[in-house]
Design a binder for these strands. Structure first.
Length: 512
RNA sequence: GGCCCGUUCGUCUAAGGGCUAGGACACCACCCUUUCACGGUGGUGAUACGGGUUCGAAUCCCGUACGGGCUACCA
């Protein structure tokens, strides 16, 4: 690679960042870091009508949470700014005019009504007319429209001088094969006769994506341009623009990532709501409609797990390894091993990744997040060492971070609901007496170790001719409220003598 | 409709001409566990179809089917 690696992620601030977007960021980031390059985030806000307040901040917060921070952006600075396209408005027009002067583009004055009429006019196919598809604004029709190609030049000048609303469209060659090498798909080629004369500069003076990407990728010295597969059909427009404006030899290398699919077709926000899994990285509330779309973060995912899962959705290193630290991903990532086929998102597998990451994390790495989570759920966490012991005891049984609440709340406060229904049917006086005796024994116990608690428990059971197995479930329910959690004696040991006895007494009073 | 991309267990994928197509998730069974999980062992399960090329094809070529994307003064 002769040029310095510089890649960009170019989102438009129109809403939350979903799985596919984050994966695009990830692959860009991994590639940049692998080759000691720069990762740039450029905000593509050229469509004023779709601008959503807060979306831009949301994108940066998401990148921060994921640990995929850019080297250059609106927020991070850099020498190639501004990094917001609306602030670069002035720079695009001159490139569009250059294209016109060189015969590769033209002014078009057609009104929305005229365009509408053109699109839906019946067209003759053989001896019958068809209307099965909409007419494109292309070489077959441009000479019948109102533009600088059909109008006398004085008329064009007059219209321009009068400030008539107009756009600038690319003049696609009639029959030319445009091909390029995609790093993932290999050679891809298109016949220019089937692609339309895309608008490059809109009536409001803003560029469309097509012009803006090419100009900005050039100006920002982008060496590799990666994006989703949905952009493949418009690639010939971009290639041609590169050829006309900056030279093919300066064009970045392209790669188009496969799409991430939902249970039925393309993954959408609706799939999340319908099937009960998040599609956005973090919670997103649409400021206009006020509806909330759940995020992986709030759902209880660890950023490392989220990133790991996304990396493997369309890429693997060729071995059977599935768990990767970010540094390993950077080291092992290669564009050639990215799949060309779309991947269906599987939430079960995503949860598995999270579980694995919770297990592989040290207690210390979880402490902060779990502590906050518990406090957020109204639990009082005062003793750090105590919290560490609790996490150590329950982490392996938590798939999502949020599972820590249910799995450990009883360590911090007595259960509110005791599932007495699970023990009442088999309850009797003998058991009642056993627990009374257990309280007396525990009260006098000189130490409070797990093993002591267990052996005393069993001795008393044996002395009363009861099976320990019949008593442990009731004991568990008294302490935690239900049929879950780590070993009972470990729980008792951790919550302490006073609390253990208090909970047994409390439950006993409920059994009468 | 047109153009482009794609197609290996239900899902994510390995195997880029040559052993009984491997792994992971999910599922099932058993073991462990005097709760629920974790964990362990094993099992069910795939090369879309049809033609070529070749001694030999999941792998290369062609066609068909199916899936997806695009076809806006949206990105």
């Amino acid at each position: 690679m002769d040029k310095k690696v510089r890649v960009r992620f170019a989102p438009s601030p129109t809403g939350g960042l979903h799985l596919g977007g984050v994966r695009t960021v990830l692959y860009n980031y991994l590639f940049a870091k692998k080759y000691n390059g720069d990762f740039i985030v450029r905000i593509e806000d050229t469509d004023q009508t779709r601008y959503v307040p807060g979306a831009e901040e949301y994108i940066f917060e998401t990148l921060k949470w994921c640990g995929l921070e850019p080297d250059e952006s609106v927020q991070h600075g850099g020498n190639f700014g501004p990094y917001r396209q609306s602030e670069r408005k002035e720079t695009y027009r001159k490139y569009a005019e250059k294209l016109i002067n060189e015969g590769h583009a033209y002014y078009a004055f057609d009104t929305p009504e005229e365009l509408e009429k053109m699109r839906h006019a019946p067209i003759a196919i053989g001896d019958k007319t068809e209307q099965s598809h909409t007419q494109q604004y292309d070489h077959t029709i441009r000479m019948k429209m109102r533009n600088s190609l059909t109008l006398p030049s004085e008329e064009t000048h007059r219209l321009l001088e009068e400030g008539t609303r107009h756009v600038i469209r690319i003049k696609m060659p009639e029959h030319e094969t445009v091909s390029f090498t995609d790093m993932i798909r290999g050679e891809v080629s298109f016949d220019t006769s089937v692609v339309d004369d895309k608008v490059l500069l809109k009536a409001d003076g803003m560029p469309t994506y097509h012009l803006a990407v090419v100009v900005d990728d050039y100006l920002m010295q982008i060496s590799h341009a990666f994006r989703g597969e949905e952009w493949l059909p418009s690639a010939p427009v971009h290639i041609l623009l590169w050829k006309y404006l900056f030279g093919l030899e300066n064009m970045p290398q392209w790669a188009h990532f496969p799409l991430i699919l939902g249970p039925s077709g393309k993954l959408s926000k609706r799939d999340g709501a319908k099937y009960g899994f998040p599609v956005f990285a973090m919670n997103w509330t649409d400021p206009n409609r006020g509806d909330l779309t759940e995020g992986f973060k709030e759902k209880g995912f660890l950023p490392d797990a989220f990133i790991n899962m996304l990396a493997l959705l369309g890429w693997n290193d060729g071995t059977e390894q599935e768990l990767f630290y970010k540094e390993e991903l950077i080291e092992k990532f290669s564009m050639e091993r990215v799949h060309s086929a779309g991947a269906k998102f599987d939430y079960e597998k995503a949860k598995w990744f999270n579980h694995e990451w919770i297990k592989r994390f040290e207690v210390a790495g979880l402490k902060l997040q779990v502590g906050e989570l518990l406090k957020g759920n109204g639990l009082t966490v005062s003793d750090e060492a105590y919290l560490e012991k609790v996490i150590h005891l329950v982490k392996d049984r938590c798939t999502l971070l949020t599972d820590f609440v249910q799995q450990s709340s009883f360590f911090f406060q007595a259960p509110e609901n005791i599932d007495t229904g699970a023990i009442k049917p088999k309850w009797n006086d003998a058991k009642q007496l056993f627990f009374v005796e257990l309280i007396r024994n525990y009260q006098l116990s000189p130490d409070w170790h797990t093993t002591t608690l267990e052996s005393n428990f069993k001795e008393i059971a044996a002395a009363n001719d009861l099976k320990p197995g019949d008593l442990m479930l009731p004991f568990r329910i008294m302490l935690v409220g239900g049929k879950f959690g780590p070993g009972v004696f470990e729980i008792a040991s951790l919550i302490g003598k006073v609390e253990t006895i208090r909970r047994i007494e409390q439950a006993l009073s409920l059994m009468k």
